[in-house]
Amino acid sequence: MKKLLKHYSPNQNELKNHKSLGWLSQYLTNPSLWNFNRKSVSKAFAVGLFCAFVPVPFQMLLAAPSAIIFSANLPVAIALVWITNPITMPPIFYACYKLGAWVLGVGVEQDFVMSLAYVWQVFDVIWQPFLLGCLIVSVVSSIIGYFSIQFIYRLRVYKRKSKKN
């Protein structure tokens, strides 16, 4: 899998000399943005999972600069925001709303309807539990993602070393 991802990732020299990227090309030459190693991929999971549960449109536009700032693998961070896509977004964000309502100790709207019109109608009631639930899920999932990738990489190294012995 790592070889396949490396094959389709852009070359650093191509990015550096690409005229259409303009001022952005200077930020895209950081090797960590394109390396598939333990540090950059685990940071990418943290960034991508955090941004995936932030309730804003075009989450990739939030994940890309975050990956650049934290020197995380850019393609992985951007791909992970698609966990919340148009199909999965309603149930995930409803679960975030229920979590936030539970933490705040407020009642959940009993006649909740999965429609944008209804959400706008009751937004003044649901916005606090919804945003709190999204924040909790963002933080917890990014921490779990970061340490899971760290653990998986270390486990793979341990298995490789034990096979050699």
Rank of each mutant, 00 (worst) to 15 (best):
M1C: 06
K2G: 01
K3F: 02
K3P: 03
Y8P: 01
S9K: 12
P10V: 14
Q12Y: 10
Q12M: 15
E14D: 08
L15G: 01
L21T: 06
L24G: 12
L24A: 14
T29Y: 07
P31T: 15
L33H: 14
N35T: 10
N35D: 15
F36V: 07
F36P: 04
R38F: 04
K39P: 02
F45W: 10
A46Q: 11
L49I: 05
F50M: 15
F53Y: 15
P57K: 09
F58D: 13
Q59A: 11
A63M: 09
A63G: 12
S71M: 03
N73A: 00
L74V: 03
P75G: 02
I78F: 04
A79C: 08
W82N: 07
I83N: 05
T84A: 08
I87P: 01
C96V: 03
C96A: 13
Y97Q: 00
Y97S: 04
L99I: 03
L104M: 12
L104C: 00
G105H: 09
V106A: 02
V106N: 01
V106K: 05
G107Y: 12
D111F: 10
M114K: 12
A117M: 13
V119Q: 14
V119K: 14
Q121N: 08
V122D: 06
D124Q: 04
I126V: 15
W127N: 04
V139I: 15
V139K: 09
I143L: 15
I144D: 04
R154V: 00
R154I: 01
K161D: 11
S162I: 12
K163Q: 10
